[in-house]
Amino acid sequence: MPGLPGTAQGLRMALKKRAGNAPDLVRKREGSKAFEYHIDCLPADTQEAVRQRHFKSVLEQPGCKSVGLPVKRNSAVKPREELEIMRQCPALVEREVATLTDDQ
């Protein structure tokens, strides 16, 4: 997996270090000596690889059909029209402002 050590010992040490003292990120597996770690203990690229592997396995199950997403038509609103709509409806302005990041 990308972003993880290649040895079992290195992997255990890395996961233990990333989990820290957070009991909600690690638990002992019942009936075993093994520990289970939350996906948040993994690096971002490893999390994405795990998710993609999981999605692929779900889609390969029998009875699972992939549904084509509807094609979105390009109904672009001109900036002036959008501004006029926002002036008429303050809730749209609040929604737009809420999506802005600190840098923006």
Score class of each variant (00 low, 15 high):
residue 2 P to W: 00
residue 2 P to E: 01
residue 6 G to P: 00
residue 7 T to A: 01
residue 9 Q to E: 07
residue 9 Q to F: 02
residue 10 G to H: 01
residue 10 G to L: 02
residue 11 L to R: 06
residue 11 L to P: 00
residue 11 L to V: 04
residue 11 L to M: 03
residue 12 R to F: 06
residue 13 M to P: 00
residue 13 M to I: 10
residue 13 M to D: 09
residue 14 A to K: 06
residue 14 A to P: 02
residue 15 L to H: 01
residue 15 L to Y: 00
residue 16 K to S: 07
residue 16 K to Q: 09
residue 16 K to V: 04
residue 16 K to A: 11
residue 16 K to M: 02
residue 18 R to F: 04
residue 19 A to C: 06
residue 19 A to E: 03
residue 19 A to F: 03
residue 20 G to W: 03
residue 20 G to M: 02
residue 20 G to V: 06
residue 21 N to I: 03
residue 21 N to P: 00
residue 21 N to G: 04
residue 22 A to Y: 02
residue 24 D to K: 02
residue 25 L to C: 09
residue 25 L to W: 03
residue 25 L to R: 11
residue 26 V to Q: 01
residue 28 K to D: 04
residue 29 R to W: 07
residue 29 R to H: 05
residue 29 R to D: 03
residue 29 R to Q: 10
residue 31 G to L: 04
residue 31 G to N: 08
residue 31 G to H: 10
residue 31 G to E: 05
residue 33 K to F: 11
residue 33 K to V: 07
residue 34 A to Q: 08
residue 35 F to D: 11
residue 35 F to A: 06
residue 36 E to S: 06
residue 36 E to T: 04
residue 39 I to D: 02
residue 41 C to S: 05
residue 41 C to L: 02
residue 41 C to K: 01
residue 41 C to R: 00
residue 45 D to L: 09
residue 45 D to W: 07
residue 45 D to A: 08
residue 45 D to H: 08
residue 46 T to A: 14
residue 47 Q to G: 01
residue 48 E to N: 01
residue 48 E to Y: 06
residue 52 Q to H: 09
residue 54 H to I: 15
residue 55 F to C: 09
residue 55 F to H: 13
residue 55 F to I: 15
residue 57 S to L: 14
residue 57 S to C: 09
residue 58 V to I: 15
residue 58 V to T: 10
residue 58 V to M: 13
residue 58 V to K: 06
residue 60 E to Q: 14
residue 61 Q to V: 04
residue 62 P to N: 05
residue 64 C to N: 13
residue 64 C to Y: 15
residue 64 C to L: 13
residue 65 K to P: 07
residue 66 S to T: 13
residue 66 S to F: 12
residue 66 S to L: 13
residue 66 S to V: 15
residue 66 S to K: 14
residue 68 G to E: 14
residue 69 L to G: 13
residue 69 L to F: 14
residue 70 P to H: 13
residue 72 K to I: 15
residue 72 K to E: 15
residue 73 R to K: 13
residue 73 R to S: 12
residue 74 N to L: 13
residue 74 N to E: 14
residue 74 N to C: 11
residue 75 S to F: 12
residue 75 S to M: 14
residue 77 V to E: 12
residue 78 K to P: 08
residue 79 P to D: 14
residue 81 E to P: 03
residue 82 E to D: 14
residue 83 L to Q: 09
residue 83 L to R: 10
residue 83 L to N: 04
residue 85 I to W: 13
residue 85 I to R: 14
residue 87 R to E: 13
residue 87 R to L: 15
residue 87 R to N: 14
residue 88 Q to P: 02
residue 88 Q to T: 13
residue 88 Q to V: 08
residue 89 C to M: 10
residue 89 C to L: 11
residue 90 P to I: 09
residue 90 P to G: 11
residue 91 A to P: 00
residue 91 A to N: 10
residue 92 L to W: 15
residue 93 V to D: 07
residue 94 E to L: 11
residue 94 E to A: 14
residue 96 E to H: 11
residue 97 V to T: 11
residue 97 V to F: 08
residue 97 V to G: 01
residue 97 V to R: 07
residue 99 T to R: 10
residue 99 T to K: 05
residue 99 T to M: 10
residue 102 D to A: 09
residue 103 D to R: 08
residue 103 D to C: 03
residue 103 D to I: 07
residue 104 Q to G: 04
residue 104 Q to Y: 12
